[in-house]
């Protein structure tokens, strides 16, 4: 994966596939550490599955024999001096937390976070997504339930809405000095 935002799309897609109705996506800068946390209320995993999920040759799919999303994310975290922690419980959900050295030389770039979050929100209208980006001073949160409430019978997946969300997230992250390179 070229940048961290691509990992985010990938892991959120795992949540969608796990039939989650709610996904919490949190990006946090804590001192010298960048934390990316994606939590869902999907079907969760057994302890046995949980042990295997970072093995690139393990997948629950029947269409192919590799599952590379989580192993790639783990690699990106570990090469940045951090780690990937996965907590999961059947029937409760899964939380994937990656910690990365914020200024580590080998940390992949964040990529276009505004674009990523807007595409994830509009691309998965069946899921409620709570996006939070924060550091020790500022915090920005956007919740799709509020967006959908405002839109009423209009679809969150309409291109104009996606572009609006992208611009709104971008402007707020810049304003709050939360833009991560």
């Amino acid at each position: 994966m070229r940048d961290l935002s691509l990992h985010i799309i990938d892991i959120v897609q795992n949540s969608v596939r796990a039939d989650a109705s709610l996904v919490n996506l949190t990006i946090e800068i804590s001192g010298e550490v960048l934390i990316i946390r994606i939590g869902d209320n999907g079907c969760g995993m057994t302890a046995e599955t949980l042990q295997k999920v970072t093995d690139p040759f393990y997948t629950t799919r029947t269409t192919r024999k590799v599952g590379l999303g989580l192993p790639f994310f783990k690699q990106s975290a570990e090469q940045s001096g951090g780690e990937l922690i996965i907590e999961s419980e059947v029937g409760v959900g899964t939380v994937v937390t990656a910690t990365l050295g914020l200024h580590h030389l080998d940390r992949p770039p964040m990529g276009d976070l505004s674009e990523t979050v807007s595409l994830v929100m509009s691309g998965n209208p069946q899921v409620d997504i709570v996006f939070t980006c924060k550091d020790d001073k500022n915090e920005f949160t956007l919740v799709t339930t509020e967006v959908k409430e405002i839109l009423g019978d209009l679809d969150i997946s309409m291109p104009k809405v996606t572009r609006f969300l992208r611009e709104m997230i971008e402007e707020n992250l810049i304003e709050l000095k939360l833009k991560i390179e």
């Binding site: 990938d10 897609q13 674009e115 990523t116 998965n124 997946s157 291109p159 572009r163």
Partner: peptide
């Protein structure tokens, strides 16, 4: 994603909006 799907989705968002085509663009597995 690794093959560039994000860029393609973004292109559809921008281009269909620019052309004012009524559309919904979603992600799938």
């Amino acid at each position: 994603i690794a093959s560039g799907a994000k860029e393609i989705m973004n292109l559809f968002v921008n281009e269909l909006d620019r052309r004012a085509i009524d559309a919904v663009i979603t992600q799938t597995g």
